[in-house]
Design a binder for these strands. Structure first.
Lengths: 200, 200
DNA sequence: TTCGGAACGGAATACTTCGTTCCGTTTGAA
DNA sequence: TTCAAACGGAACGAAGTATTCCGTTCCGAA
């Protein structure tokens, strides 16, 4: 089937996406040349597949969004309310999907489809939150979930594997904090405060 | 005493530092012109006080470090072990000192004095941690404290005041998470993993 | 009132940093 | 052997930005 040159091209497409994910996750403003270098290809290999930098960023972010939705849908199948919620957060953190959307948003103009997906993602997330709300400390709101994910995304060390391990550690801590008794101080975050990323 | 022109100059010095703090906290790579504009002064007012951009950054970061030390020293006077620890974390978060050091580190080469201060800061923090360790969940290490501060610094919304309010909310949550029962998964962060900011 | 000069504002300069384009080369398939 | 899809990477041009420079302002001393 796909052999020789065609196979190499397919491999490159994958390599470019993977490289882009790594590079732009480390620094959203990284030059496109860094992606090519990381992927081990020339710049033209990149431009053959994407009309420009923005398109690459958009694709990357949209992929992340889809993954986010997939995680939410899978978690929703879990019957236990808290378990579903926990599985969702852990899944999103594990896939490093939130960093993707957080860091990259604003570096490109979203398509209509992306906006729709973003809305759907937020609905799915909220639904999982509502189911688990009964087991959380009073005063927790869905927007808290977004902030917690931001906080996890902020955990990063030089080695990617260790970053993942450490994040698992702190999701645990955060989830425990979310179930602790006692009120949380101050007005909770508003949905709008937390979604400045998606302002069109 | 200082009146007229001299007073204006003093005001400007303050305005420049304040503006620099705001601007570089929002974006560590901001152009120096943005600082001047924010401070309401010309670019030359800036270069009169600092030989170059790097010196400004260094000064800013060093100020933050000193503030960090001050917070630690003050908290150390609190007799109750946990209260001291909590006061320390809340103080550092409140002053937004950690963001300063986190975002700015790496944008300049540190002086010997800064390195010394950084070491002292870390010792003071560790001491506070050790005192409170008995009331934390098992497996918590001093480096966790650094990560928690990173996570708090990651909480940010457009409005600075709200950012502070929200951070108070999440320090609370984190502290509760730190006292929750149960082990934390994975190998804890190593001191070196967490201090890549200060690599000389 | 008159000057000297400290302090300024901001245009001009001198680079550096990227996104994108271009062109010559490679290589698998017919 | 030939064709064209895919490449690699130098070259180009548009931005962006740190730093310098110079003409202007205005406090304070004479």
């Amino acid at each position: 089937m796909t052999a020789g040159r065609a196979r190499e091209a397919a491999r490159n497409s994958e390599a470019i996406l993977a490289a882009a994910r790594e590079v732009f996750l480390a620094d959203a403003r990284a030059p496109i040349a860094a992606v090519a270098e990381r992927a081990g290809v020339g710049i033209s290999a990149l431009y053959r597949r994407y009309p420009g930098k923005e398109d690459l960023l958009r694709t990357l972010c949209h992929d992340g969004l889809r993954r986010f939705i997939a995680e939410a849908e899978q978690a929703a199948r879990e019957p236990d309310d808290w378990a579903a919620f926990e599985m969702f957060l852990r899944g999103v953190v594990e896939a490093d999907v939130h960093s993707l959307t957080v860091h990259l948003a604003g570096t490109f103009t979203p398509t209509a489809e992306m906006s729709a997906d973003a809305m759907r993602a937020s609905e799915l997330g909220d639904a999982l939150f509502q189911r688990a709300r009964g087991r959380m400390r009073p005063g927790a709101v869905p927007a808290d979930m977004t902030v917690l994910l931001d906080m996890c995304a902020a955990v990063r060390v030089l080695d990617a594997g260790r970053t993942t391990e450490l994040r698992r550690r702190y999701v645990t801590l955060l989830l425990d904090g979310l179930r602790a008794p006692g009120d949380l101080p101050g007005p909770p975050p508003a949905e709008a405060e937390v979604n400045w990323r998606w302002r069109t």
